[in-house]
Simulated scan of single mutants.
Amino acid sequence: MQWSTLAATAVGTVLGVLATLVADHVRWRRDRSERDRDTLRAAFTEYLTALSTAKDAFSRAETSPERIGKGHVAIAEHGVYAARQQLELVAQRVIFDSAGRATLSVLDFHDAVAAGHATNSPEYVNAWRSARQTRAALIEEMRKVLQRS
């Protein structure tokens, strides 16, 4: 048997094994990236749902001057803080910071409603608009992160 045949067979085997390992590694990275994106998407959806539920509930709430400044209790009842803590674990800092701004804007909206401002008053409209704009900015940041990952 010739040495060149054995060497070619050995080199071919090594190259085949290396190609398989590289392909497996690429597949593993792609699968991991997809799982990470799914995890982020689920956390984003949970937070946005909780935030929207709280804002919708606040828009239907009755005036209650003693509730002004106590929106953090009401917002916790809708799971916003729990969903935000989950974001802190899985999302980038920019998302967590934007979520904090969105939470604060919904708290400001709560206070405008609790203070008894009419739906056409400047205070109510400004609080509602601010909550909508911070939520839109957060969603844009979330989309960017999902596209990159």
Results as ranks from 00 to 15, higher is better:
A136D: 07
V11F: 15
L146Q: 10
D111S: 05
M1A: 04
R84T: 08
E140K: 06
N126S: 15
Y81K: 03
N120H: 10
R30G: 04
T45Q: 10
T39N: 10
L138Q: 01
A82T: 09
L6G: 05
A8S: 10
M1F: 11
I75K: 04
G16I: 02
V106G: 03
D31T: 09
V22Y: 07
G116H: 09
L104S: 08
E34P: 04
W3Y: 08
S64Y: 08
Q133H: 11
E77D: 11
Y124K: 02
S33T: 13
E34D: 05
V22P: 06
V26Q: 11
R37N: 01
T45E: 08
V106D: 02
T103I: 02
D97E: 07
Y81W: 14
E34F: 02
V125I: 12
L40Y: 09
V125A: 06
E46F: 10
H25I: 06
A54Y: 14
S98A: 07
A115H: 12
E66L: 14
V14G: 14
D56R: 15
H25A: 10
V145G: 03
L40Q: 07
A102L: 06
V113C: 07
D31S: 15
T119K: 14
R84F: 04
H72S: 11
R32M: 08
I75Q: 12
L18I: 09
K55T: 09
G69Q: 01
Y81A: 05
G69S: 06
